[in-house]
């Protein structure tokens, strides 16, 4: 029995990864979208069903409604980023984080428009905002707005402002709590639309929910992680400035995962330190007792991966992600990787090899140079165990290179994709620009959109 087939006897446990599972994911997706909309829209419905004061003009009340909506959307951000595995499963957590970015921008616009309309209608209100006369609840509103503005600027332009990711995460959380807390103080203080006791209860409940979520994410979850440590077994140098960390659970059974999923990794810190980073699992899902991450030296954190030494303690929060062939059963698969985007695809290939899979597989793997091609030797070895064809696409090929070079173009895809391309599932992982370009090229080749799966691993 080969190395890859050795572990195929291990029972593989994942939920919803058969044909019926696909349907379940769609239903579950709609269910969680419904829950999110209820959370965000409830305060507006309450306003609609039980209006408070008599009308003060359309634009006045419109601006008040936007203020309420923006605040409830801010509250819902805590739910979005709490990483509830069941809620994230139908979408993939990368999509939820991108949704968080965009919906935060929408909420910010609503909240900015709220005082803008009021000041436009009643410029005299500016007088009430002078520091000598400002009321405490108005001050809370102003500080909330300033905090929120800082939050948005530092999030949208973090890299341009050269803010370290770890520091940004801590300040992002603190600013978010401050902005929401002060917005609720502002609403309660103004009191016009929350006069009845049950409306006050509603806002108190929203505040309590946010507080509970905060306790769960920042206290309970890290405590659980602390009790489930991992040990770094090996740090292996790979081609292309990449390193593979081999981790084993210590005193617990670890977790099972679908091939292609990822986890948040904490190194050199306690889980309370908020210094965790998402990485794809590059090892086989059939060997959950030995989890591997292959990490390329790209940023502040990843450049220090080589300094990790065997015996160090690590913590893993996972598995997450919807990028897995187990979610979309097919007769054959096509994988397209760019750079270190090979990591989750390697996890899938290793899993398929461990399962003794005989389906037809095509890997198109784009990289800068032949020498730097991560997993070069192992891919050649995998060909002996799988019905796998590998097409390397090099940016800077060596002089005697006979293979493909340049970008993954329509012509290149036409040369290598199987004839019955509609019968395959396509998995793309790489830089955002490459993924978008290849996705469009696949569409032009006639691949249905629902058969193209991608993951954006630039969550930071």
């Amino acid at each position: 029995m080969s190395d890859y087939q050795r572990t195929s006897a291990i029972r593989f446990r994942t939920k919803g990864c058969n044909g019926v599972g696909n349907m379940n994911y769609v239903q579950r997706g709609f269910f969680w979208v419904g829950i999110y909309l209820c959370l965000v829209l409830t305060p507006l419905f309450v306003l609609l069903l039980a209006p408070g004061l008599s009308g003060s003009g359309f634009w006045w009340d419109f601006s008040i409604a936007l203020g309420f909506a923006g605040t409830s959307m801010m509250g819902a951000m805590f739910v979005l980023t709490a990483r509830f595995r069941h809620a994230a499963a139908p979408f993939g957590i990368d999509l939820i984080y991108y949704f968080h970015r965009w919906i935060a921008l929408v909420a910010f616009i609503f909240i900015i428009v709220h005082p803008a309309i009021l000041l436009f209608l009643e410029p005299v209100f500016l007088e009430d905002l002078r520091i000598s006369v400002i009321s405490w609840h108005m001050l809370a509103g102003v500080i909330s707005l300033i905090t929120l503005t800082i939050l948005m600027v530092t999030s949208l332009w973090r890299q341009q402002l050269k803010i370290h990711y770890d520091a940004w995460r801590i300040w992002h959380t603190l600013f978010a709590i401050t902005a929401l807390g002060l917005a609720i103080v502002h609403i309660e203080g103004v009191g016009n639309y929350v006069s009845s006791p049950w409306k006050r209860i509603l806002w108190a409940a929203i505040s309590a929910c946010c507080l509970i979520l905060l306790l769960y994410v920042r206290l309970i979850k890290p405590l659980v992680l602390l009790r489930h440590p991992y040990r770094v077994e090996q740090v292996v140098k790979e081609r292309g400035d990449a390193w593979t960390l081999v981790l084993r659970p210590q005193g617990h059974s670890g977790f099972t995962f679908m091939p292609g999923q990822f986890a948040w990794l904490t190194l050199r810190n306690s889980p309370f330190a908020l210094k965790e980073h998402p990485f794809s699992i590059s090892s086989s899902a059939m060997q959950p007792q030995e989890i591997q991450f292959t990490i390329k030296e790209l940023g502040d954190f990843t450049r220090r991966i080589k300094d990790v030494f065997p015996g160090q303690t690590a913590y893993l929060d996972g598995p997450y992600g919807a990028f897995s062939m187990d979610r979309h059963p097919s007769s054959d698969y096509v994988f397209i990787a760019g750079g270190i985007g090979i990591a989750p695809i390697m996890g899938m290939l290793r899993t398929l090899a461990d399962r003794g899979d005989s389906r037809s597989l095509l890997l198109i793997y784009a990289y800068k140079t032949w020498e730097g091609l991560t997993f070069q030797e192992e891919l050649e070895k995998l060909k002996e165990h799988l019905h796998l064809r590998v097409v390397y696409v090099l940016d800077t090929p060596p002089d005697n290179w006979q293979g493909e070079s340049g970008f993954i173009t329509d012509e290149l895809l036409a040369r290598h994709l199987p004839v019955a391309m509609n019968q395959h599932e396509y998995y793309l992982c790489g830089p955002v620009v490459m993924t978008a370009m290849v996705e469009k090229a696949l569409r032009r080749q006639g691949v249905p959109l629902h058969q193209i799966h991608s993951e954006i691993f630039n969550l930071a």
């Binding site: 999110y36 909309l37 009308g55 419109f62 991108y98 921008l105 609503f110 978008a436 959109l449 193209i452």
Partner: peptide
């Protein structure tokens, strides 16, 4: 596609909320 989907979902939610806010303002002054 995933980036686009995230944008569309956020935009749709935003428009829905905007409509509800307008409805509230309308009925408050009806």
């Amino acid at each position: 596609m995933r980036l686009f989907l995230a944008k569309i979902l956020a935009l749709t939610t935003g428009i829905l909320i905007l409509l509800l806010a307008a409805m509230f303002a309308f009925f408050q002054n009806y």
